[in-house]
Nucleic acid binder design. Sequence first.
RNA 1: GCCAGAGUGGCGGAAUUGGCAGACGCGUACGGCUUAGGACCGUAUGUCCGAGAGGACUUGUGGGUUCGACUCCCACCUCUGGCACCA
Length: 840
Amino acid sequence: MAYPFPEIEPKWQKFWDEHTTFKAVEDSTKPKLYVLDMFPYPSGAGLHVGHPEGYTATDIYCRYKRMRGYNVLHPMGWDAFGLPAERYAMQTRIHPRITTQENVATFKRQIKMLGLSYDWNREINTTDPKYYKWTQWIFLKIFNAWYDNNLDKARPISELPMPVGLTEKERYQYIANHRLAYLAEMPVNWCPELGTVLANEEVDEWTEKGYTVERRMMKQWMLRITAYAERLEKDLAELDWPPGIIEMQRNWIGRSEGAEADFPIQGSKKSIRVYTTRPDTMFGATYMVLAPEHPLVDEITSSQYRKVIDEYRAQAKQKSELERTALEKEKTGVFTGGYTMNPATKKPIPIWIADYVIFTYGTGAIMAVPGHDERDYEFARKYNLPIVEVVAGGDLSKAAFIDDGVNVNSSNDEVSLNGLPTPQAKERMIRWLEQKRIGERSIKYKLRDWLFSRQRYWGEPFPLIYLEDGTVKALPESHLPVLLPDTESYKPSGTGESALATVDSWVKTVDPETGKPARRETHTMPQWAGSCWYYLRYIDPRNEKEFCNKDKEHYWMPVDLYVGGAEHAVLHLLYARFWHKVLYDLGYLSTKESFKKLVNQGTILGEDGRKMSKSFGNVVNPDDVVKEYGADSMRLFEMFMGPLEDTKPWSTRGVEGVHRFLNRVWRMIVDEDGNLLASIKEEPLSVEDERLLHQSIKKITLDIENLNFNTAISQMMIFVNEFLNKEVKPHSAMETFVLLLSPFAPHLTEELWEKLGHKQSIAYEPWPQYDEAKTAIETVEMVVQINGKVRSKFPVPINMDEDELKRLVLADQNVKRHLDGKRVVKIVVVKNKLVSLVVK
RNA sequence: GCCAGAGUGGCGGAAUUGGCAGACGCGUACGGCUUAGGACCGUAUGUCCGAGAGGACUUGUGGGUUCGACUCCCACCUCUGGCACCA
């Protein structure tokens, strides 16, 4: 007979709701704890079993910490802007607001049915104008800020020092160029047949259907995240994040140290600046390569090469960034006819253009050192360019030697690197470049500025207007939020702009300060925008005057534990950290970083070990699981499957297993009529039972602290296996056990707690304490190894005297048998564990 | 190719600082209870040899350090995730 979870679970969910059991209020008498789940995008498909994994883990942790006296903030909300709702709207003409509301209702029902202890008073939705008002407000703060490299922080644009003698137009341009949000011509994925811009993730889908997607330049809003590259990289060190994620962020930011140097163009006064991480190899630079887009290409190209160069550049322009990089085919390039001089060797070297050099990284130009760079080597081989060895240690007839080594062939009248190991050679060369004013030390990042415009309807509108003279103006804060207008069609305008561009009455507006006609920006913000700061809004979700009250922010921040999928390892977490730092610089926040500890839950695979997907027919619906086995079983199984971070397959048998366990828990305490079992009495525990109880408290406590929920559950199973059929079960032991189980199976344990005679919810009962002395055992099983093999075991009292123990070991029958005719060379005693004999 | 993480029974997975490999669960087999049960209870269960006592082998592969290695070191193989011409 199964325990009556269909009655118990709704009963306690209602109780928690009605008593607002999990409402969080600032309370300076308690230590605070902010535990955050990555909020979901409420898709039409509803919750899948992957969502509750992280949610259950944080819920257990929160419930445990409340019992330990922490004031816990544990909120939930909806990341509801995004492409799927908009695409659905295009097909059905149903407003995305409506479908979003429906999807949120489904998600909320499903999440609530799991008994998660969220403070629902703090629920937020990124598509709510009351929320996105503040997303727009933060955008304005970014827009109205510049990065002061001297102070190494963002400052209000009003504090930007202005050069004297600028015209009004120049002033405008100067300021625009310094804002942290700026307009730039950037390539988009343009599909002529659809007349729309595609998101990167859509490109494959449409090209597979035979549509063409090409690169097209468009003015777009960019956020100057590169200004923060150094701090975003440096502050990673203070985060308690999985090393893998830190590494991924580090790679994404891509810091590299090197030098820049000027190479004079022959027959011109100008020079070309290159960036290299290997200044020590400059004597081996035998040619130069510019990115096809490099502005000096025209000037360098001699007339007889003009035609090929132009053709090559046109070709490169056609190719999308994907094609240029992902194809990984043979390198191509063409000679410009121009020459530059290697400043180290003073010899002329040819200038080529090739699309393996990226315009947007470094200076868009490289000195090619084929002897010590694989790419340059490949290129030089193909086009018969000279290869010179300047670092000894490799065989240049076979491959480039890219490792560190010792310099050779590296001297001129002023400097010699010969004999120097690579690190010193680098330093020596940089010093020489700086002395001769040829170049200087330089640090570069791979990180690019953040393309922040989307040509979409279902996103936050920018609080910006274009005046008739073409200038951009920020709307005053008092005009926020800029609401999304309703429209008949959600289809993009066909010109590359979003559907917003077709809503004339919305686009046409006036400058609120001058009354002059103006047009609204029709781009919208990317989905990342709302998720960049939601953790701050939870702190003060109903505040209409500020995005977040400062005292409250000070009390709750930073987020102590953040749990979510690893798919957000780079972008979401990097963008959120960036916004956080901007707000910190501008004085709105008290912490440098947002998320102190981060944990990624692993993916749950289908029962067949494949990724869950409709096409495989292996998707597990949480509704079905809860209906069949109850929410507590679902929660428990999700935690019992294995370590939180691991990828692991679903198993219906496994759910049945933990469900059986919960039934056993019920039967351990409740009789067939639903009353407390007669075997539960006010009696003291035997020494053995008390030991098991204290061992269980200890193991479960430490396991929850370390988020090792699977082994905590194992320990509870051991406890129940021992106690289930005891004739007498001490009341206190049963209570302690129910407390231990309560973070995992809150509904069942609330019910049992009530049956054990309590009127109050179990949620804030003090967590059981263990007594280390009571976990100790009196006898240990001593293992005897002879030449590394276990030959005997016998019980001995704990902490036995070593000599006595040795005597016992040598007297043991099994040991004697193996010692027959041999000599004991050495005895190793590991206290309370084993005795190891070496014999000959 | 590069970076990070991981390889343990039929399956999911356990194993402080090196110290009895396989906890706990699933599955399987046998037994009990039962009109019946796919409910429940009990016993067994890494592989091989052996009637048994006992023995041999066993944590991806090969080597090393050690009285002792899933754990540390070296080389290799496989899988997962990320990056992918970033000079």
